[in-house]
Amino acid sequence: MLEAPLVIEYPFNRTTGPVIGAFLTGLREQRVLGIRGVDGRVVCPPVEYDPQTSEPLTEMVEVGAEGTVTSWSRVTTPRDGQPLGGAHTLALIRLDGADTSMLHVVDGEVVTGDRVRIRWADEREGLITDIAAFEPVEGGV
């Protein structure tokens, strides 16, 4: 019986809108932006509308390049397309100055409460992968 690989691929090309566009532009500049919600909390990555009231949000603020792991999952057998090309940790990270967590990859083993720092990609093009990974901060609490 014959067998062959079959790839189904969709070449999506999306408009970002002004909020996500500013977030991605910031990443290209090695800066992370969040957005201030109606209750004053900073949401990062930013959203266009308030998570509680649905009102449009407009005040974008810069947050830190270090943060705290709030949840994590170790990936020991990565699949094609996953980051870092080997075992890694997927984690929710609350960046300093933000009140919500973002999902990204940590290059190393961490647990909840550990401190991590952004490792920027050498070539950045305005994508979430401009953050190459987070790295554990040695001795950080």
Partner: peptide
């Protein structure tokens, strides 16, 4: 949105992204 100057003033802000999605089957 009101964007911090360090980001607002850069040339060619991001407006579109390519995000291809693919699935590999064995047929």
């Amino acid at each position: 949105p009101v964007v911090p100057a360090a980001v607002a003033e850069v040339a060619e802000p991001v407006q579109r992204i390519r995000v291809p999605a693919s699935m590999l089957y064995r047929y």
